[in-house]
Amino acid sequence: MMRMHVPLPKAQPWMLPVTIVCLALGMLVAFMLKVSAPKKLDTTNMTRDQLIALYAKEMSDHEQLLAEYEKLREKYDRMVDSATTDQKLRAELQKVIDDLRVRAGSTAVTGPGIVVIIDDTKLALQNPPDINVNPLLTHDVDLLQVVNELRAAGAEAISINDQRVAGSSAIRCVGPAINVNNKAVSAPFVVRAIGKPDVLYGAINMPFGILDQLRQMNTQVEVSKREKLTIPAVAVLPSIEVGTPELTAPAPPKGGE
């Protein structure tokens, strides 16, 4: 035994039990530090008030994160601004970015255009028992054809029931409704398109065109030109995960190979 600065009685018999107890105590202390992460939130036993409080908390967290996102995006914009000092180049780049944002659907767009309202056949709404109403309903394919026709006529932005139809948008049949951008929309379908109103109007009413076909099925169709329309942005743009933009110009092909 080492001689201590503080002289203790040479009581050897206490050494072994104290050592054993210290071993146990060390293990206990270590156990305290090894407490695993708290259990996953168990909502099944929670009361209504607790759930409401939890929901409110999560919502406020969500708001905070949104505000943070907004702030960061502003900061990002400022940084892009300050990085591009050449005013003329900046203006050109901004124009390119704005055009691309309109194309991509990441910004709301305002301008003249047309509104097409398509509703199911009145007969289909009555749901007669002895008639197959399926051909009388408006389908995803009909909307796709309308969108296609509007794009061909130079529409710059299109929305269906306030869902922006962008390059990433899918228009799909989901039972009684139609999904646009994975949001269900249902009849009456209000298709807004920004472009030259006369051109769009003429194109969409083309003889034997899609609206003509729909009218022949007694679908209720209504087209009107508008001086000013506002089309919202895509709520959530999908992120680019596997593709890599090829920003540099492709190398010229080598001859003689």
Partner: peptide
């Protein structure tokens, strides 16, 4: 004197590590 302290450390490490 050092034996209990050593035991404390050994016990701690045995569970913690």
């Amino acid at each position: 004197m050092w034996l209990p302290i050593l035991a404390l450390i050994v016990g701690f490490c045995a569970i913690y590590l």
